[in-house]
Simulated assay, not measured.
Amino acid sequence: MKIAFSPCPNDTFVFHALVHGQVPGAPSFDVTYADIDITNNWAAAREGPEVLKISFAALPWVLDDYALLPCGGALGRGCGPLVLTKNGAADPASLSGKRVAVPSERSTAYLLFRLWAAQNIPGGNLDIVVMPFHEIMPAVRDGSIDAGLVIHEARFTYQNYGLHMMTDLGSWWESDTGLPIPLGAIIARRSLDTASLTAWIRSSVEYAWANPEASAAYVMEHAQEMSPTVANQHIALYVNEFSRNLGASGYAAIEALLGRAMKEGFVPAFDMAKLRS
């Protein structure tokens, strides 16, 4: 079976056991490591592997063909995207007309940014540039971009680039809704045995927690020159109880995000019941 997820530590930690034959009864998996923007586009085009990690924000485009699995993804608190600048500007209105780099136009990070910008940037007049997330901070530092929307380990390293945080979109979302932040979803083609896939992925999460050292070499092999300390911070932030089971608050967060986005016209209309079926 083919699967695609990012090389980020949270994904390699979660899926280590599954793709290394440590989950009883699971088939062998052929892994493709891909940036979230790539997997979002694969899913929307009905291309690529049978199982993918995508942004929750991309779900409205794919739910007719893919089921959302209730485990293996990334939701949480205190782990939201950041808006960074070089000059330390604090007023969101200062971004009007400026170039802002984002990691994907169908990412949860970008959707949160659009919802925030609709409240805080008059007219929403922005020049959006999509680039791989690891290129965003250098671009802001070097002045080719005015601001950057960053995710993942950038929360821990942006100061190394001399950058300043304008806003933490996770804090904004949590204070506005009281809900966790839905970031990355695991989806599978509806033609598959999604119940078995759910059980295998859940077992992989539980194996990772029970045997954290087992995945260490695999995590660092794909960690893009990240230090072990930052990789461990990354795992601790993004792999949590929601990775085992979305639960009531997880589904509520997803429905709140996509419901607001649908109301604003940021995503196409879709059947919300398909999030749970």
Results as ranks from 00 to 15, higher is better:
F56R: 06
N245T: 11
G162S: 07
W61C: 01
E105I: 10
A252N: 13
T108R: 10
V129Y: 05
R106A: 09
A269V: 06
A67F: 03
E221I: 04
P24S: 12
A147S: 12
L197H: 07
P212L: 00
R77P: 01
L163N: 03
T108S: 15
E206W: 01
V230N: 10
S204M: 02
V140P: 04
N232K: 14
A188R: 06
G259M: 08
P81Q: 13
M131D: 12
A217Y: 02
L82P: 13
Q22A: 13
Y161C: 09
L112T: 15
G265S: 02
I187D: 14
A57K: 04
E174C: 13
A43I: 10
A74I: 12
N120T: 05
P212I: 01
L126E: 13
D142Q: 09
L258C: 14
A223L: 01
I187Q: 09
G76M: 10
P27Q: 06
S203H: 09
A261D: 10
G72N: 09
L68V: 13
S144V: 14
L115H: 00
I54H: 05
R155H: 13
S215W: 01
H222F: 08
A90W: 04
M1E: 11
Y251V: 05
L275D: 11
K274T: 10
I145V: 15
F5A: 00
C79F: 04
R141Y: 11
G72C: 02
I3M: 13
N211Q: 10
A118H: 11
L149G: 07
D37I: 09
A188K: 04
A90P: 00
D142N: 15
F133I: 11
Q22N: 12
F113S: 06
A26N: 08
A195I: 06
C8V: 14
A118S: 15
A67K: 03
S107R: 02
G72W: 02
P122N: 02
G76A: 14
C79I: 14
F270S: 08
D64R: 05
P9N: 04
F15W: 00
V150D: 06
G259Q: 04
S171R: 13
R276S: 12
W209D: 05
E264M: 15
E206I: 02
A214G: 03
G88N: 07
K2E: 15
D146R: 03
L18M: 01
P27A: 09
D168F: 02
A17N: 01
A101F: 00
L179T: 12
T229K: 09
P92V: 06
P268H: 09
